[in-house]
Design a protein around this nucleic acid. Structure first.
Lengths: 342, 342
DNA sequence: ACAGATGTTGGCAGCGCTGCCAATCTGATT
DNA sequence: AATCAGATTGGCAGCGCTGCCAACATCTGT
């Protein structure tokens, strides 16, 4: 009850496990066992420890615990997660899916955001590795040589999320962006659209979008109906960028009858442009997005788009990380949402 | 160059600092100094250490470093951040602002997401405290008694973000949600709207929205023009929820001339309902949001809303955490964006 | 009554690193 | 040549906890 001392002492020493042991009149290892609910101890001991903990306001020191426990079976219950951005809802969703599973398994997760910068990703991987995590979840298959080397050398479980178009290091969970592009093209072709354009954002930043576009173009090509025109907005994807880019595109090519967007953010902006300029959708111009944002379904005309299993990917990544199965690629697929815009 | 051993040994031991010391032919402390670029050492030594590190593929163990360094000046360069959600863009923005500053200061951040659950927040605070962080950034001023007790007992710097309407523990950075509500009401009143309704989401989850509404209602009341009607959607805010809720509201009260939304997500849904049903905005019905989402500015009619300095709040929170100034409340204000919908 | 299970407990050596201090070396100063 | 400040270095004791092992205590069945 007396916390006065904190006012006097220059550096109040924090309560440690051995303080608790002394207070409870038991050994340190006993306290440790009780706190981790591991091994055996009597009910009486448990109560005395619990009391002592409460009385002293003891907070275990995870740093020490993980250090001491490292190298053994229990090991560090910790995983690192690297994502490129937090502003695109895709990544928070992946995070939610992963942390839900991880939390349940008693894992702590440490997150790094690379801002789509490969160099920064490499640095983050180094930083996260220095936490000695049980595993690492990263985004995409493309990494700097340095990052790849570190990941390989780490000897821990690595999960690469989202993209299955290419070779992974260990475990890969996602879907084929390339196939998404193909299916999107097929959908437009089936509906009779022939003068098809593309509106995207800076593709050097977003390799997955590039893969979708590649699949899209290829399918159009095979159908003898190549992509008519493309308009790339500089900078990251956003509704504003999509709106402006579509405006430029239709100004240049008024004959287009359908536009494929790099994602729903861009497509929403495109849709708003059509509303503003009185371009009939899909009569005059069809719009096709990617990601199935919640908001895209609430538009006056629900957007035609692709739903990706983001939470499921995050969850599957986390599950694979905890289990120790073989290296494998898990394709969770996607779903074409036939809205009212294409 | 030979990594064969990993194939033989059951548990390959990780390279440690003393391995590096041996390889470089120097003492452990020397390696430590070089790696942290602290204290003095010759260029020659530095090079030899760097080589040894590269040759061995050494990755420092942060866990050990922080444990050993704890209690001293350098201490743990670590902060914990607790936010209620990742799906509402507000929080990723706060995070971005904070981590940008924190990274620059050499801090690592560990993030916890409470899902708007106070109990879960308390648990997260406990978990983060066990990392022995230099400080903690939490969201809002309302916490469970248990959480408050832990925060107080921790003895570390605490920053509460976003909300300045109430008493904080230590440092508070944000703006007055109440004032936002008042200003929003004033704007509508000035423009001549008199039959004003409210569309919100589950307010028990979002205390800040409740404060805005309180300020809003009070100002209307003072103007002798009380809130005419309100419609609350269950669950979290979303465009779909806003759309449906507004539909219900106008069905019940077709006489309303303006609607205040709990935030832009909801307002966007409301706007879409108006487009769908041919309700003229703002002629027949004015719409007012909150948060100034990017997408709200790209609508055919830019949404009238409130821009909040999210990045700045995160950054200011991080700065205050690192510095050790006095406890204070920092009001970063907000900006009314007069769009075309109200 | 006694060996052998089973349950409970404490001691102590690390985990890998940093802080502190003493040792050594360098060059400049007297 | 002696002295000294400053630069450079290594040794070692922890940081707070967990894993391992030995020491008991208690309970079986014969």
């Amino acid at each position: 009850m007396n916390v006065q001392r904190s006012l006097q002492e220059p550096e109040r020493r924090l309560v440690t496990l051995s303080d608790v042991a002394r207070e409870a009149g038991v050994g340190e290892s006993t306290v440790s066992r009780v706190l981790r609910n591991q091994g055996s101890f009597s009910k009486a001991t448990q109560d005395r420890v619990a009391e002592a903990v409460a009385r002293l306001g003891y907070v275990p020191n995870r740093l020490a615990g993980m250090l001491a426990g490292s190298g053994s079976t229990a090991g560090a219950k910790l995983v690192g997660i690297v994502i490129p951005s937090l502003t695109n809802i895709v990544f928070p969703d992946l995070l939610r899916g992963a942390t839900a599973v991880l939390d349940r398994g008693g894992f702590q997760s440490v997150i790094g955001v690379s801002d789509y910068d490969p160099e920064r990703e490499e640095a983050l991987i180094g930083a996260l590795l220095s936490w000695r995590p049980a595993g690492l979840i990263v985004t995409g298959l493309e990494h700097t040589p340095g990052a790849l080397a570190r990941l390989r050398a780490s000897g821990i479980r690595i999960v690469e999320m989202i993209d299955t178009d290419g070779a992974g290091l260990d475990i890969v969970v996602g879907f084929s962006n390339r196939a998404v592009g193909c299916d999107s093209a097929r959908h437009l072709l089936e509906r009779g659209y022939r003068r098809i354009g593309y509106v995207g954002h800076d593709i050097t930043q977003d390799l997955r979008a590039a893969k979708r576009l590649a699949g899209f173009c290829e399918t159009l090509q095979e159908a003898g109906c190549p992509l008519a025109e493309r308009e790339i907005a500089s900078g990251p994807s956003s509704a504003a960028a999509g709106r402006e880019a579509l405006a430029r595109l239709v100004a240049r090519r008024p004959d287009l009858d359908a536009v494929y967007f790099s994602n729903d953010d861009m497509a929403l902006g495109g849709y708003f442009h059509c509303l503003t300029d009185g371009i009939a959708v899909p009569g005059r111009l069809a719009l096709f997005g990617f990601n199935a944002l919640d908001i895209a379904a609430a538009l006056p005309q629900p957007l035609t788009t692709i739903r990706t299993p983001r939470l499921e990917i995050g969850a599957a990544a986390a599950e694979r990380l905890a289990a120790d199965g073989p290296a494998e690629t898990v394709d969770l697929g996607y779903e074409l949402i036939a809205g009212a815009t294409a």
